[in-house]
């Protein structure tokens, strides 16, 4: 039971620590950010191994555990499995939806935002393009190509 508990806690920590990257309105320190990104890097594989070990351990032991002990075992196994599942979901992408499907319009006919709204204006060679800040502020960035150059307008 102690082993199962340790595995569950480890999985949870590895799955949740990367959320430090997206903590809003807090000042993240460079060291902790680095640590958190490192954890995020290894957590999908690490959590999978931990959860697999937890499952195997539970399969071996569950017959011996009875009553509340068995309930606790199931709960801990569930924690480990959810942790592993969590690392397979790109949470960041769910919080900040990437823009998909954007089309170009002639500026003369562009009425999606008000005349007084701010746009990011870019000129690359002979091509010019306006990126409304209201849209960019939601998606934060848009991978684009202007005047033959790949650019990343962001806000």
């Amino acid at each position: 039971m102690f082993l199962l508990g340790t595995l569950a806690v480890l999985t949870a920590v590895l799955a949740l620590a990367p959320l430090y990257v997206v903590l809003p309105l807090t000042e993240q320190s460079a060291t902790l950010l680095d640590l958190s990104l490192s954890v995020r890097h290894v957590s999908p594989l690490a959590c999978l191994l931990l959860a697999a070990t937890a499952t195997a351990w539970f399969a071996i032991k569950w017959r011996k555990w009875t009553g509340r002990l068995r309930t606790a075992g199931v709960a801990l196994l569930l924690v480990a499995l959810s942790g592993a599942a969590l690392t397979r979901i790109n949470i960041v992408e769910r919080i900040f939806p990437p823009a998909d499907g954007a089309v170009l319009a002639e500026i003369a006919r562009f009425v999606d935002v008000a005349d007084t709204d701010i746009v990011i204006g870019v000129k690359m060679g002979v091509e010019t393009r306006a990126y409304p800040v209201r849209f960019l502020a939601h998606h934060h960035m848009w991978n684009d190509k202007l005047g033959g150059v790949p650019i990343l307008p962001n806000y």
Partner: peptide, 30 residues
Amino acid sequence: IPSDEVTLATWRAEYPESTAVRFMGGIRYP
């Protein structure tokens, strides 16, 4: 890269040949 932060009206008046990006996220923008 150089970029501008100006109103749509200003940009349109200065660059009438410009394109603008319409985002079609199907979600409510600010």
